[in-house]
Design a protein around this nucleic acid. Structure first.
Length: 628
RNA sequence: GGGCCUAUGGCGCAGCAUGGAUAGCGUGUUGGACUUCUAAUCCAAAAGUCAUGGGAUCGAAGCCCAUUGGGCCCA
């Protein structure tokens, strides 16, 4: 039990008081209080003011009086505040014990929102023709963090990565390789994905502008891609799988792993589209247009003012949304699965096995990656398209929240950073563009961060051996990058600045990791194994109680974050924890007090903090080093 | 022309879902704290018409409507 226990106790008692007063249907809140207003607050008096025709304060007076008549073990005092709020003060001796012993359990912070149901999270889904840039990293980190949070909330999570290996962008680099003389070997020291993106793709699209005859070659290449047996398709497969492997290396390095890779080329060749098309017709979800500008087309009717969306053109070809519909249906398990499965050639770090779909026969057992619910992480520029799919899937499953588009705003480049890449934006931020070569690769940001953190770590710990420095710097760099991508709301644009993003102070991952390192150091120096068999009443300093309280909020934060699919809730929680601990660290001594019992109690608190911040950071995919 | 997102101290953000107390945090600025369990830290000060206008409400940063600035999508 955690801080939730006192909230539940109060809620129960307030409900009893309400029925005593013969009042029903009041949905009051019981929440952790703001500092200086006790431990828990309720707005119940404001809501009753109208019904009982009394002032909120009068009601609070009555409530606080009545409250004492009901059984309460975790509340020590109820106070009616002149503002009208009803404030509760906790019995900290009991609450300390509850929270600190709970925090030692493996499942601390878990909530049961999912009831062990299966949810599909699709993220990453980058065209396999270039290296991942900082904008893709936002997608990947959001997707991975959400997956971790949902797992903590008792969902079984299937993480998918959709590989668009048959689109225009892939065709473009194929044109570069086959018609513009690009070698298949990158220059010495350059990763293949960087080479494809930085050199082949950018220069090929440049050439289109100069040489219009390339346009036909491009179109033909794209067409040939759709036919799996073509030489072009085989060549594409060779190139894209090399790029994909490099992309995956970047993800793995950031602690991101997947369950299954889905290939667009296979979805096209699988015949899924034909089957879903028939089903759509059967269910009257699409209509054949006999007149107007869409005459001869199959369309999805727009709702309200929305325009109709063409699905199949009058010439019989499917529009690009026709690739997304079967995939969405497959993710929800609405169709009989056309795929076989095989393991990815390289093992990814961690415990997940990475599978991939195939249309060939395999010896591996059939897998099932479909879910009761699907979350697709794609930036909000795709909102319109995603909305159509959401509506369609809702009708298919006759349930409204089975397919969720989790959108987020883009990452743009600051004027300074754009300038270093050779574009003068006159002080404005700039949209990244793969075609124009205007982006910052994720690997380079990681390298910059790592060089800086190695330098810092060496300065602080001359005694550390190189491999430990390397490991610590890696954890800090990954943490910094991930935290920057997650700490603000999804609907805020992130303006990426190469210089500012390297900051390691303030509201950053290193700040939080440092608090953990301090805690680890106290425990190490104590020479003891922290125990929960201590006197909890010795933890009475307001700073200590504040820290216990924040620790006890873990599960409430996980629930909030999972319900709202809002990863930043956890990043803020980590920050709050670190602030509370740093304040404790500066003001409350643990070691060398000459009071063994007090030292043991405080060690218990330090240990609770340490494992809680570890678990919370783990939800963000961030490791916490013991020394930094 | 239609749609989506956004506006909070100089800068970057939280709070808005579920209206109620003293609008928080980081950074920057100014000043202070390392012989101490690690200063990637802490403490303090200055800095806010919560974009503008209206509405409903006993009560709005939050809800509704309109307007303006910024970003994006579609045509």
């Amino acid at each position: 039990m955690t801080f939730k226990s006192i909230i539940e106790e109060i809620e129960n008692n307030l409900h009893k008081i309400l029925s005593d007063l013969e009042v029903s249907n009041v949905s009051f809140t019981v929440e952790p209080a703001k500092p200086g207003f006790g431990d828990v607050s309720s707005n119940i008096s404001f809501l009753l003011a109208k019904i009982l025709k009394k002032s909120p304060q009068e009601i609070s007076n009555i409530m606080s009086e009545k409250y004492s008549k009901f059984q309460h073990t975790l509340v020590s005092k109820v106070e009616s505040h002149p503002s009208g709020y009803l404030n509760f003060f906790a019995n900290w001796e009991k609450l300390n014990q509850l929270i600190l012993s709970e925090s030692n359990l493996e499942e601390f912070g878990s909530v049961d929102l999912g009831k062990n149901s299966t949810v599909v999270v699709e993220h990453t889904s980058v065209n396999p023709n270039k290296a991942l840039h900082i904008g893709h990293i936002r997608n990947i980190v959001v997707g991975d963090t959400i997956s971790r949070i949902l797992e903590k909330s008792n969902y079984k999570v299937n993480v998918l990565n959709y590989v668009d290996d048959s689109g225009l962008q892939v065709a473009d680099i194929l044109v570069g390789f086959r018609h513009l003389g690009f070698s298949q070997n990158p220059p010495e020291g350059k990763k293949f994905d960087h080479y494809c993106g930085d050199d082949v793709y950018v220069k090929t699209t440049e050439k289109y502008l100069q040489d219009s005859s390339l346009e036909d070659i491009r179109k033909n290449t794209l067409k040939e891609l759709e036919d799996g047996s073509s030489e072009t398709a085989q060549f594409a497969d060779e190139i894209t799988s090399k790029v994909l492997e490099n992309q995956l290396e970047t993800c793995w390095n950031l602690g991101v792993t997947y369950d299954c890779l889905n290939y667009e080329s296979q979805i096209i060749r699988s015949g899924l589209w034909g089957r879903i098309f028939e089903k759509l017709k059967e269910m009257n979800l699409i209509e054949f247009e006999n007149e107007g500008k869409n005459s001869g087309c199959w369309v999805i009717r727009g709702e309200g003012k929305e325009e109709d969306k063409v699905i199949v053109r009058s010439n019989g070809t499917a529009t690009y949304i026709a690739k997304d519909i079967p995939y969405a249906a497959w993710k929800l398990g609405l169709l009989e699965d056309s795929f076989n499965y095989k393991k990815y050639d390289k093992a990814q770090p961690g415990t997940r096995t990475l599978w991939q779909t195939t249309l060939d026969d395999t010896n591996e057992p059939k897998q099932n990656f479909a879910g009761d619910k699907v979350i697709t992480v794609i930036d909000s520029r795709q909102a319109r398209l995603q909305k159509i799919i959401t509506t369609l899937m809702a009708k298919f499953k006759s349930s409204t929240d089975t397919y969720v588009h989790l959108g987020y705003e883009s990452v743009t480049l600051s004027a300074d950073t754009a300038k270093t890449l050779g574009l003068d934006t006159e002080g404005k931020q700039a949209q990244m563009s793969g075609r124009k070569g205007l982006y910052v690769n994720a690997d380079s940001v990681y390298d910059l961060l790592k060089n800086k953190t190695i330098e810092e770590t060496v300065k602080r710990h001359p005694e550390m051996n190189p491999s430990e420095i390397e490991k610590t710097a890696h954890q800090i760099s990954v943490g910094t990058l991930r935290y920057e991508m997650i700490k603000q709301d999804l609907d805020k644009i992130i303006t990426f600045d190469l210089t500012k993003s390297l900051s390691l102070e303030g509201d950053t991952a290193p700040y939080i990791q440092y608090a953990h390192a301090r805690a680890a150091r106290i425990i190490e120096k104590s020479g003891q194994t922290p125990s929960i068999d201590v006197n909890f009443s010795l933890l009475a300093d307001p700073i200590e109680l504040y820290l216990v309280r924040i620790i006890g909020l873990f599960d409430l934060q996980v629930r909030d974050s999972a319900r709202n699919l809002s990863p930043k809730v956890i990043s803020r929680y980590c920050h709050d924890l670190a602030v509370a601990f740093n304040s404790f660290y500066e003001n409350v001594k643990v070691l060398g007090l000459g009071d063994e019992n007090l030292e043991k109690s405080r060690l218990c608190l330090v240990h609770s903090f340490k494992i809680t911040i570890e678990r919370a950071l783990d939800l963000l995919g961030i490791d916490a080093p013991n020394r930094m």
